Simulated assay, not measured.
Amino acid sequence: MERPKNKFLAELEKGLVNHQDKQSILMEYETHIDEILIEAYDCKNEFEVMERIISRLGGPEEIAALWKEELSVTPSNMKWLFILMNVLFFGGGSLLTLFHNVYQWDWLSIIWSHLTAIPTIIAIIYMFFWALLGYEIGKGFGHGGRTLLKKTFLLSLIPNLLLMVLTVFEIIPHSWFEPLLTKSFIIACIILTLILYPISWLGYRWGRKASI
Rank of each mutant, 00 (worst) to 15 (best):
residue 161 L to R: 07
residue 138 G to L: 02
residue 57 L to H: 13
residue 95 L to D: 06
residue 138 G to N: 03
residue 89 F to E: 05
residue 71 L to A: 03
residue 41 Y to S: 01
residue 211 S to M: 04
residue 124 I to V: 09
residue 73 V to H: 04
residue 189 C to S: 15
residue 174 H to P: 05
residue 186 I to Y: 05
residue 183 K to A: 06
residue 13 E to R: 09
residue 162 L to A: 13
residue 10 A to I: 14
residue 113 S to G: 01
residue 181 L to Q: 07
residue 163 L to D: 02
residue 123 A to K: 05
residue 79 K to Y: 05
residue 59 G to E: 04
residue 26 L to E: 03
residue 112 W to D: 02
residue 63 I to H: 01
residue 19 H to V: 07
residue 55 S to L: 11
residue 14 K to S: 12
residue 165 V to M: 08
residue 32 H to S: 05
residue 167 T to A: 08
residue 176 W to M: 11
residue 130 W to H: 04
residue 20 Q to D: 15
residue 120 T to E: 08
residue 56 R to Q: 13
residue 58 G to D: 04
residue 168 V to M: 11
residue 205 R to Q: 14
residue 32 H to Y: 15
residue 191 I to S: 12
residue 41 Y to V: 03
residue 64 A to F: 10
residue 199 I to Q: 00
residue 148 L to K: 02
residue 81 L to S: 06
residue 23 Q to I: 12
residue 206 W to P: 00
residue 170 E to H: 15
residue 199 I to S: 01
residue 199 I to Y: 03
residue 141 F to T: 00
residue 162 L to C: 03
residue 41 Y to A: 04
residue 167 T to C: 06
residue 75 P to Y: 13
residue 138 G to C: 01
residue 131 A to S: 03
residue 77 N to G: 05
residue 16 L to S: 06
residue 163 L to I: 10
residue 44 K to P: 06
residue 83 I to C: 07
residue 148 L to Y: 02
residue 12 L to T: 07
residue 10 A to K: 15
residue 28 E to Q: 12
residue 207 G to R: 04
residue 85 M to V: 10
residue 75 P to N: 05
residue 120 T to L: 08
residue 182 T to N: 12
residue 146 R to G: 02
residue 69 E to Y: 07
residue 38 I to M: 12
residue 41 Y to F: 09
residue 192 L to K: 14
residue 30 E to A: 07
residue 133 L to H: 01
residue 205 R to P: 02
residue 193 T to E: 06
residue 39 E to H: 06
residue 123 A to D: 08
residue 66 L to K: 15
residue 47 F to H: 14
residue 22 K to P: 01
residue 191 I to L: 11
residue 39 E to S: 09
residue 48 E to A: 07
residue 181 L to F: 14
residue 143 H to W: 15
residue 188 A to E: 06
residue 189 C to G: 13
residue 186 I to F: 14
residue 61 E to P: 01
residue 169 F to V: 14
residue 112 W to L: 07
residue 203 G to T: 06
residue 62 E to K: 13
residue 137 I to C: 01
residue 159 P to G: 09
residue 85 M to Y: 04
residue 186 I to L: 10
residue 17 V to Q: 11
residue 185 F to I: 02
residue 42 D to H: 11
residue 206 W to A: 05
residue 26 L to V: 07
residue 204 Y to L: 01
residue 204 Y to W: 10
residue 70 E to Q: 09
residue 152 T to S: 05
residue 135 Y to Q: 00
residue 7 K to M: 11
residue 101 N to D: 07
residue 136 E to K: 10
residue 72 S to R: 09
residue 169 F to H: 05
residue 159 P to M: 08
residue 105 W to M: 11
residue 140 G to L: 06
residue 139 K to Y: 15
residue 105 W to P: 00
residue 122 I to N: 00
residue 133 L to W: 02
residue 86 N to Y: 08
residue 6 N to S: 10
residue 35 E to H: 12
residue 104 Q to N: 14
residue 45 N to K: 09
residue 103 Y to W: 10
residue 79 K to F: 12
residue 23 Q to N: 07
residue 72 S to Q: 13
residue 170 E to R: 15
residue 68 K to F: 15
residue 173 P to C: 13
residue 155 L to P: 02
residue 200 S to H: 05
residue 204 Y to I: 00
residue 17 V to E: 15
residue 29 Y to P: 02
residue 18 N to M: 08
